[in-house]
């Protein structure tokens, strides 16, 4: 197999497995992608991962699909993006196709509900784990602005139900303003 073909196959099988494991909402893709693409394959870096999530959640469409496109594009260009989308879309497509023929049985089955509850506990732990790790790396920057943004964004999303896209836009503008202020200060000092 050519190098590119092998790359696309790794991409496809990785995104397929990740997508099959994203129970409980789009953000669950973050710890799973971090494990696969940051820690195992070393395709992306820790900070880059957060940038990609920011882009993924402020773009139209599902976070999991968008994040896959970003990783796929980075790994192998537009073809990689398409490969990643195929890998991400296929598991739900197959599962729902199968489920659509006997969905009332699945929905009402007590064992399905039990498995779901157990799975959810694991999913919650996986997402909390990535939050602890990432939160600590933000605190380690010793930047007042970063800590302030983290707390304010949390309060905005959690308690005031502000739309995620608005929060991203506001933080982006804050970043632009603080960069301009820093440049101005540097110019004046010179």
């Amino acid at each position: 197999m050519t190098r590119n073909g092998k790359l696309c196959w790794t991409l496809f099988s990785s995104t397929f497995k990740l997508s099959a494991g994203t129970f409980g909402g789009g953000f669950v893709i973050v710890p799973l992608m971090r494990e696969r693409f940051v820690r195992q394959l070393h395709w992306i870096e820790e900070q880059e991962m957060l940038d990609l999530v920011a882009i993924a959640e402020s773009s139209p469409g599902a976070i999991a699909v968008n994040a896959s496109i970003l990783v796929g594009y980075h790994a192998a260009g537009p073809l990689g993006a398409l490969t990643a989308v195929a890998g991400t879309v296929l598991p739900p497509l197959l599962i729902i196709t199968a489920v659509s023929y006997f969905y009332s049985a699945v929905r009402d089955h007590p064992v399905a509900a039990m498995a779901m509850n157990g799975l959810l506990a694991g999913v919650a732990a996986v997402v909390c784990d990535v939050v602890f790790t990432m939160g600590r790396s933000i605190l380690a920057q010793h930047s007042f602005l970063a800590v302030f943004i983290m707390l304010a964004a949390f309060a905005a999303v959690r308690f005031w139900n502000v739309n995620i896209v608005l929060v991203i836009l506001a933080c982006g503008m804050l970043g632009a303003v603080s960069t301009m202020a820093r440049r101005r200060k540097e110019r004046l000092e010179r």
């Binding site: 909402g25 959810l120 997402v127 939050v131 933000i138 983290m150 964004a153 933080c171 804050l174």
Partner: peptide, 26 residues
């Protein structure tokens, strides 16, 4: 770089909010 540096803490905050929702649900 400046803009992205301010987006990263916000992304962590949003994942934290999703994590809290998952914990409550579970």
């Amino acid at each position: 770089k400046g803009v992205l540096a301010c987006l990263r803490p916000a992304v962590v905050a949003m994942i934290a909010s999703a994590a809290l929702s998952l914990v409550v649900l579970c």
